[in-house]
């Protein structure tokens, strides 16, 4: 019997907004999939594109970044930079023919527990449709 595919989604979330939002989702007893693995960073701009590439190449089925809404960054402009870097990375992925659908950036504020649950569910569904990341099997990377 074929094993059921449970996606593994590496999520880099900012401490001030999205992580707190995820916390709220938890305390509000909202359901979100266990496939989401949260990694807390102080600001979404701390996320070097290299982290995302590594997650993808090492076999994460999806990579999610969560940050404060534009204009709400606790460091004022951090997430604007994140947005540019993320855009650059997706452009690299599409030019190299890599699955940029596996990358996602979302703005989720501390009060948006339901949004966090919704994004997690949506993204997990999307990844389930995409199937497992074939980089996980590749031994020549």
């Amino acid at each position: 019997m074929e094993k059921e595919f449970i996606p593994r989604i590496t999520s880099f979330v900012c401490k001030w907004c999205t992580y707190t939002g995820a916390d709220l989702a938890g305390t509000s007893r909202l359901q979100y999939p266990t496939s989401i693995i949260l990694l807390k960073v102080l600001c979404s701009s701390r996320i070097d594109p290299v982290f995302l590439i590594k997650s993808y190449l090492k076999g994460a089925d999806g990579v999610l970044i969560g940050g404060c809404h534009p204009g709400d960054c606790h460091y004022e402009t951090g997430n604007y930079h994140t947005r540019r870097r993320f855009k650059i990375l997706t452009e690299i992925f599409s030019t190299l023919g890599l699955p940029k659908e596996r990358l996602r950036l979302s703005w989720i504020s501390a009060s948006e527990g339901p949004k966090f649950a919704q994004v997690s569910n949506e993204f997990t569904d999307k990844i389930e449709n995409l199937g497992p990341n074939n980089a996980r099997e590749n031994m020549f990377l």
Binding site: P49, V50, L57, I92, L98, L141
Partner: peptide
């Protein structure tokens, strides 16, 4: 190997 190249591209 591939990581280095994509990483450099991102940078």
């Amino acid at each position: 190997t591939v990581f280095f190249q994509i990483g450099r591209l991102a940078h």
